[in-house]
Amino acid sequence: MAKTVRAVVIAGNGTNCEREVAAACRMAGCDVADVIHIAELLAGRARLDDYHFLNLAGGFLDGDDLGSAKAGANRLLHARIQGSEEHLSDQLRRFIADGKLIMGVCNGFQLMVKMGLLPAVDGDYQAQSATLTFNDGGRFEDRWAYLKVDPASPCVFTRGLTGVYLPVRHGEGKFVPASDEVLSAMEQRNLCVLKYSDPAFEGPAFDYPLNPNGSIAAIAGVCDPSGRLFGLMPHPEAYVHRTHHPRWTREADLPEEGMGLWLYQNAVRFIRDHLL
């Protein structure tokens, strides 16, 4: 019997990218990519235990106001499953302990940071040690960004990659570690997976517009020490086919697969190699 790779995308409370994420998972080789409203999880009609790959999608979570991700994080951390003594956070902890994969994009990245799942430099998934705040420009940014990949990172999702080109669309994407010590630990452990870069992917970009939000150390994406939990502000699900590229009608040599798909393909490859 064929082994089944099962992905789940949580929807609700303002997210609007869940179907694009599910499509990316299917294109990458997931046999199942379910979009589940958070109400279904809280009612006990769906369980995280049934999946290998959890996706926290972007959109306009809780109105996309500053602090909205904190409200969403509290919902995930403290809400109890209907008719049960179990909390949704219990399923989430089991999911991580079982060696499964989590990717958060945009609002989903904010959720993971606010919940303490990232960067978790000491393997402590309880304490928040960074935040994402207003862009330095004080406005919503909708543009494409060059992202340099740290080749020494333990991140499962970026293995074999040197750089990717993806769209950003956010008003609160500036990554700020809680302290210089947290940033130093992240750098030493190669947890700063993606950094805003120049078009040649040669180094971090600190100035606008290459760095669209003013993130400290040009950080655009972060993983935990295991490399299995990953969050990023740019949207990989928004570039999984050549026609998603802003210059696809002018660049005839673009490959059929968009760069964002590579992240999902790496996830599926890891699941088949290690979890099935």
Rank of each mutant, 00 (worst) to 15 (best):
A2H: 08
V5T: 01
A7H: 04
V8L: 03
I10K: 05
I10H: 03
A11D: 05
A11G: 11
C17T: 00
A23C: 13
A28I: 02
G29D: 01
C30K: 01
V32G: 06
V35G: 03
I38Y: 06
A39R: 13
L42M: 09
G44F: 03
Y51S: 02
Y51W: 06
H52E: 11
N55C: 10
N55E: 11
L56N: 06
L56E: 04
G58Y: 00
F60V: 02
L61N: 01
L61H: 05
G63L: 10
G63W: 14
K70C: 08
K70S: 10
G72H: 03
G72E: 06
N74V: 14
R75D: 11
L76Q: 09
L76G: 04
L76M: 13
L77N: 01
L77Y: 08
A79R: 10
A79T: 12
R80C: 07
Q82C: 14
Q82E: 14
S84A: 11
H87G: 08
L88G: 05
S89F: 12
R93F: 13
K100R: 13
L101A: 02
G104R: 01
G104T: 04
V105P: 02
C106H: 05
Q110I: 03
M112D: 01
V113Q: 08
K114S: 12
K114M: 15
K114P: 04
M115Q: 05
A120S: 11
A120D: 05
G123Q: 10
G123W: 12
D124Y: 12
Y125D: 04
Q126N: 15
S129M: 09
T131W: 15
L132Y: 06
L132S: 05
Y146Q: 08
L147Y: 05
P151W: 13
P151I: 15
A152W: 12
S153L: 00
T158E: 04
L161C: 04
T162G: 10
G163M: 06
V164N: 00
Y165D: 04
K174P: 04
D180C: 12
E181N: 15
S184R: 15
S184I: 15
Q188R: 15
N190V: 13
V193L: 07
L194D: 04
S197A: 12
D198P: 06
D198E: 11
D198Y: 14
P199F: 09
A200S: 15
F201W: 07
G203E: 14
P204H: 07
A205R: 03
A205E: 09
P209Q: 14
P212I: 09
P212Q: 13
N213L: 07
G214V: 12
G214Q: 09
S215C: 12
A217P: 10
A218Q: 06
A220G: 13
D224C: 09
D224Q: 14
L229C: 04
F230D: 00
G231W: 01
P236A: 05
P236R: 05
Y239L: 08
Y239E: 02
V240Q: 00
P246W: 08
E251I: 10
P255T: 06
E256Y: 07
E257R: 04
E257S: 05
G258C: 03
G260Q: 03
G260P: 00
G260R: 01
L263K: 00
Y264W: 08
A267S: 10
V268G: 04
R269H: 07
I271P: 00
D273R: 06
D273C: 07
L275H: 05
L275K: 10
L275M: 09
